[in-house]
């Protein structure tokens, strides 16, 4: 990324070149996400090793469902924010990201609530995997929120240019990744 600025601004280069550059960055981001998905695979495995398919009746299904719905809506707004930024609409991006931040923040708070006031015995095999898995999701969610907040602040301060567009896009995509992994974890922890 720094190399790009070193080579000069976007105006002096052809569109093709910048598109190739963007494709490179997207592929690198995909590798990053691939690496980041390993912990989730592991936690899903660990749950089946530890407690099989058991789901305790004490589990708070309602809170889980509500936070999942909130997060899925925030995923949609994050995708909408990407649309906006691709059209060069910085204000739209900021608005959409605000919604994402709010919904994502509430969803993550609810996860944190579940973590703190869990109805499960942490010494039980399901309880331990539940806590660790939700904890992983909360930490990743907090990172995602931080990245989103950074993108929002940045767009407020500097605005969107074709040069900077990718950073905004990727921060939103990272949130999309966080939500998708949570949905997978939700299905695995609450339903299967």
């Amino acid at each position: 990324m720094a190399a790009r600025t070193a080579m000069g601004s976007a105006q002096t280069r052809s569109d093709v070149e910048s598109r190739i550059e963007q494709r490179k960055m997207r592929s690198a981001f995909a590798i990053f996400l691939f690496s980041m998905s390993v912990p989730y695979f592991m936690m899903i495995n660990v749950r089946y090793i530890m407690s099989g398919g058991f789901i305790p009746p004490a589990l708070d299904q309602t809170t889980g469902a509500i936070q999942t719905v909130l997060l899925v809506i925030s995923l949609l707004t994050a995708v909408a924010a990407v649309r906006r930024v691709q059209q060069g609409d910085g204000r739209g991006y900021k608005r959409m990201t605000d919604v994402t931040l709010f919904l994502g923040g509430v969803g993550t708070l609810m996860q944190g609530y579940e973590l703190w006031y869990h109805p499960l015995n942490p010494m039980s095999h399901y309880g331990e995997t539940f806590l660790a898995t939700v904890g992983l999701s909360v930490v990743m969610g907090l990172v995602g929120l931080l990245v989103l907040a950074a993108g929002r602040e940045r767009v407020k301060r500097i605005g969107v240019t074709p040069e900077r567009q990718l950073g905004y896009e990727l921060s939103s995509w990272y949130w999309v990744f966080t939500v998708i992994t949570w949905v997978a974890l939700y299905v695995e922890l609450y339903l299967l």
Partner: peptide
């Protein structure tokens, strides 16, 4: 993954 390097500019 934030993209930019402005401090140098």
């Amino acid at each position: 993954m934030d993209g930019e390097d402005r401090s140098k500019e």
